[in-house]
């Protein structure tokens, strides 16, 4: 498998997407690469759809990944995975959390939430993996650690040492949440080996 350089993290505003890409970008940087990340703040965060790009390489220019070049699409919500699936390289991987957050248009009955997500996602990716980050994090006692579960899953696809991920993660989450985020990360890592 080629080295994972271009990761798109998507989800719903408030899920900890920006923190996740902060961690991923810093892991890339500390591993000795050039790294960049980009997202939009402000109005887009109020429960709206959020996308955040992370890239590494010997030299990275654009902070945005061109459509068709995303290697891993890490989605904290299923519908958001589908919204951005077309940006994936067809050889790429989708890791998505099956947790459903219905947008208002679905909650009010104006539109329907797709019920064949995995099938639809499979059309865009070489591999589609479900990781129940929200459920796992909730069972660990802190649903907010969902993003760490997904990061653990992503880490399993990279050559980067587990200790580096944990070191950066520890430095980025509130002191009282370090332990639960570590456990969430480990569970994410394990879930990927179970899936193989």
């Amino acid at each position: 498998m080629p080295r994972i350089d271009d990761v798109l993290v998507v989800g719903v505003g408030g899920q900890g997407i920006i923190l996740a890409t902060d961690v991923i970008a810093e892991v890339f940087l500390r591993a000795g690469f050039d790294a960049k990340k980009s997202e939009v703040h402000g109005m887009a965060q109020r429960g709206g759809s959020v996308e955040s790009h992370v890239r590494r390489g010997e030299s990275v220019h654009s902070p945005l990944i061109s459509p068709g070049r995303v290697q891993v699409l890490l989605a904290l919500e299923g519908l958001e995975a589908l919204r951005y699936a077309h940006t994936l390289n067809p050889q790429g991987t989708i890791i998505f959390d099956p947790q459903r957050i219905p947008p208002l248009s679905v909650a009010t009955g104006a539109q329907e939430y797709p019920d064949d997500l995995t099938d639809q996602l499979s059309r865009y990716a070489a591999q589609v993996t479900e990781v129940k980050g929200y459920e796992i994090a909730s069972k660990l006692g802190n649903a907010r650690a969902q993003n760490s579960v997904l990061m653990g899953a992503l880490a399993s696809l990279t050559e980067l040492p587990r200790d580096l991920w944990l070191e950066v993660l520890d430095s980025r989450v509130p002191a009282k949440a370090v332990e639960v985020n570590r456990r969430a990360f480990e569970r994410g890592l394990e879930s990927m080996s179970e899936n193989r």
Binding site: A44, G48, L79, R83, H86, L88, P114
Partner: peptide, 13 residues
């Protein structure tokens, strides 16, 4: 990139 999936419910802020 590929064609975006159709009929996806919008998620504005």
């Amino acid at each position: 990139g590929a064609e975006p999936a159709g009929g996806i419910p919008v998620r504005p802020p």
